[in-house]
Amino acid sequence: MKKLSAMSKMYLIFVFAVLYAPIFYLIFYSFNSGGSMNNFESFTLEHYAAVFEDSRLIIILLNTVLVALLSGLIATIIGTLGAIGIVSIKDKKMRNTLLSLNNVLIVSPDVVIGASFLILFTMIGVKLGFASVLVSHVAFSVPIVVLMVLPKLLEMNTSLIDAARDLGATKRDVLMRVILPYISPGIFAGFFMALTYSLDDFAVTFFVTGNGFSTLSVEIYSMARAGISLTINAISGLVFAVTVLIVIGYYFINKRSKSVATGGHR
């Protein structure tokens, strides 16, 4: 493989610098003893200490991660199966209708989704709290998964499936051994985007939550009137650091175990 040219490298560095700039800005001020994101007075760790003292905030953080992971997982399953279903539909009109319906939640403003889900839940009599938030997050994450999986499915070569069938594979085998492995990059992309949707959502969660259940976003938005405390910066800094460590750690462990496995075959 050709090495990247200096220009290409510069370009990538620029993109990453922009993507991470606001995050480093937030983390920088989380060490500010001044109490706001304006003038940096002096270095302190007090905001990090405050995070660990505030058990309510920690519960909210854990709940946020729990809802994100779980809703991401469920939405990915429903969405992936849905996408496989959609491409198998022969009737073009039907297929386009489904795809349009799929996107309704992506285009609807959060307030509309939140308010209509709230009406829906109270109509059916669902108790507001963890369950209603989880279900809503699954609901608005499904379409993004479908949109991420679909292009992979569309470019998949049918001859693969035909070949598998000719070799005597069952329907199940075709799904598990041919289709899913091929579209797995799309599935992962869908899952990660679902996480993004879930972690960022404020309005929908606000409307459908209740009975003491809260997520970080709801908490942050409702702080705006009296000023967001740097404890939130500190908690974001921690979340960011842990996420990066997990991702990098997982990547290299995974890589190593894979190379060990392939090495063993030789």
Binding site: L19, P22, D200, S217, I220, A224, N233, S236, V239, T243
Partner: peptide, 14 residues
């Protein structure tokens, strides 16, 4: 993955 991670930090904060 490193492209995606920034989008997990709350949008209002960013």
């Amino acid at each position: 993955m490193l492209i995606i991670i920034p989008s997990w930090i709350n949008l209002l904060l960013k």
